[in-house]
Amino acid sequence: MSPLPRALPRRDLLKLASGMVTAGALMGTSGCGLLGGSEDKQGGNAQVEKANLRIGGLPTSELAPLHLAVQNGHFKREGLTVEIINAPDGGTALTSTIGGDYDITFSSYVPIFAAQAKGGTKLKIVADCASSTPNTCMIMASPGARVHSPQDLAGKKIAISGAGTISELMVKASMKANSVDYSKVQWMPLGFPNMPNALKADQVDAAFVVEPFLTLSARDAGAIPVVDTATGPLEDLPLGGYVSTAKFADENPKTVAAFQRALESAVAEAQDRSKIEPLLPQFAKIDKETAAIITLLKMNFRADATRLERIPRLMREFGYIQNDVDVASMIVAPPQS
Rank of each mutant, 00 (worst) to 15 (best):
R54L: 08
E289H: 05
L58G: 00
S337E: 12
D103K: 06
F106I: 01
K275Q: 15
T295W: 11
N323R: 15
S183T: 15
T95D: 02
L190C: 05
N45I: 02
Q260W: 04
T255C: 07
L296Y: 15
T81C: 09
S179L: 11
E49K: 05
E235N: 12
L169M: 15
S108N: 13
T306L: 06
V226P: 06
V70P: 01
N86D: 07
D236W: 05
T255Q: 08
N135M: 15
A127G: 04
G28A: 14
V332N: 06
V256T: 03
A87Y: 02
L14I: 12
Y182L: 00
F301W: 11
S142F: 12
A141G: 07
G36R: 12
G31C: 15
A249I: 07
I331L: 08
A218Q: 11
G222C: 10
Q71L: 07
I321F: 09
P196W: 12
Q116C: 03
A284E: 11
A115H: 12
D101R: 10
D236I: 04
K50R: 14
A130E: 08
G43H: 08
K156Q: 13
G319A: 06
S2V: 11
G79F: 03
P189Y: 11
P111Q: 04
E277H: 03
L237S: 06
L26Y: 08
A201I: 02
K254H: 13
N52Y: 12
M188F: 10
C137P: 00
L263I: 12
Q282R: 10
S274R: 13
A145K: 12
Q71H: 10
I104D: 01
G37A: 08
V227D: 00
G28W: 13
M175N: 01
G144F: 13
G240V: 04
A230I: 09
T105Q: 00
S132D: 08
L169C: 03
C137K: 13
T81K: 13
H148F: 14
G120A: 05
S131W: 09
G57M: 02
P5R: 10
T22A: 00
F213P: 04
A207D: 04
F213C: 02
S274D: 13
K200L: 13
G31S: 14
S131V: 04
L94E: 01
L26P: 10
E211V: 09
A87R: 02
V48D: 03
L314H: 09
Y182H: 12
T245Q: 13
E78M: 12
T229Y: 01
D324P: 01
I160F: 02
A93Q: 00
E49W: 04
V267S: 05
G232N: 12
A257S: 14
A46H: 04
Q282E: 11
N52C: 02
E49A: 03
L13S: 02
A262Y: 07
L263D: 05
G120K: 09
L190A: 06
P312K: 00
L34K: 14
G232K: 11
G79Y: 03
P233A: 11
T121V: 15
H74E: 07
Q71F: 03
L234I: 01
Q260K: 07
P334R: 14
S161H: 09
G36I: 07
E83K: 09
P312I: 00
R310S: 07
L8F: 08
L63H: 10
E317C: 01
C129Q: 09
T95M: 02
R313G: 09
K15M: 06
M299N: 07
K275T: 15
M20L: 07
D220R: 08
